[in-house]
Nucleic acid binder design. Structure first.
Lengths: 179, 179
DNA sequence: TCAGAATCTGACCGAGCGGTCAGGAACAAT
DNA sequence: ATTGTTCCTGACCGCTCGGTCAGATTCTGA
């Protein structure tokens, strides 16, 4: 039987501390103390500190990419809207899990993986805003989804870029019925 | 004639770097290099690194407090709404200037000054949401203003607390006519 | 029982951090 | 010219950080 409880516990604790104090605000010592193991143990399970973050983010990122790929191949409006709703749902989960990204080194943000995410969120903002003709809805979508997806639109160039943001409660606020 | 150009330049550069890389992501060395002076010069003009952040935030924080104080003394709906608009405007500016707060040490966030800000933003969210009967508007206001004001509402307790967030473009998105 | 793999650790390292300090350089007033 | 003040700096300090490593401990399968 393979021992993975420690590894899982590290991920659980790291997610909590990253969300609360940010990536840079959480040291390996902090995580190790909370897990109840040594710092060296963390680095036995994960090659670098960044690897912990990557392990946390990867699943949600994959789901996000998959859904957008499916979404792109659908024309029926009802199906498309449902897919978009699912997308928003995923983005919210993604957002929660990646709340920490803002804190990461610039080099890290420039990884190809995040270029991909940037494209996807760009498409998301455009697609979601397109569901309503009301300009207010569109701007609202930009702000809400932009915030949720850790994306901002540049004042002048209209370029979409990853940005620090933490809107962990957005799910609850966005879906009023759910309580 | 008093020499304050260096001090101003430090504030300008610090604001830029804090916004781009976060408070913890910006070292005194980084600021000094960009300004073109020594690290020691920074600490001649500002006692601590935190003092630079405080100097950047203080003006907007004061305006915000003043406006809310005025707002509290008005009953006329038109005047009140106008004041709220001004409030939102200020919050947006405040948000832009305090984009960096998210990155600050927990102790710093617990300063009395930020308790005050927390109360104010709490009142803001409640007040703004009250302008429309539409529940969607209210939730939107919570998300948008919550994000802008660097505030989140706790899932369970409904408590409002300062939070990491960066929505520098919110002004543009929130005020569609303005372009 | 025992060999080997998997898991874990304390001690240690170099780098970068915020901050201190004694003193040099520029400027103003006399 | 001198004195005092303001502004600035290099050298240095203690600390924390992420990361390494040799070796102890625990688990597993034959």
């Amino acid at each position: 039987m393979v021992r993975i409880r420690t590894r899982d516990e590290i991920l659980r604790v790291a997610a909590e501390l990253f969300t609360r104090y940010g990536f840079k605000g959480t040291s390996l010592h902090d995580i190790a103390a909370e897990v109840g193991c040594s710092k060296a143990t963390l680095l036995y399970h994960f090659a670098h500190k960044d690897a912990i973050l990557l392990a946390l983010v990867e699943p949600a990122r994959q789901s996000l990419i998959d859904l957008v790929a499916r979404l792109a191949g659908v024309d029926d409006k009802g199906v498309r809207d449902a897919a978009i709703d699912g997308f928003v749902d995923l983005v919210l989960r993604y957002r929660r899990e990646v709340a920490l990204i803002y804190d990461v080194t610039p080099q890290f943000l420039q990884e190809p993986a995040f270029d991909r995410v940037r494209e996807l969120t760009d498409a998301l903002v455009a697609g979601f805003a397109g569901r309503s003709a009301d300009p207010a809805d569109q701007t609202a979508a930009k702000v809400v989804l932009g915030g949720i997806a850790a994306v901002v639109i540049d004042d002048k160039t209209d370029a979409v870029e990853l940005r620090p943001a933490l809107v962990a409660v957005a799910r609850r606020a966005l879906i009023p019925g759910k309580d």
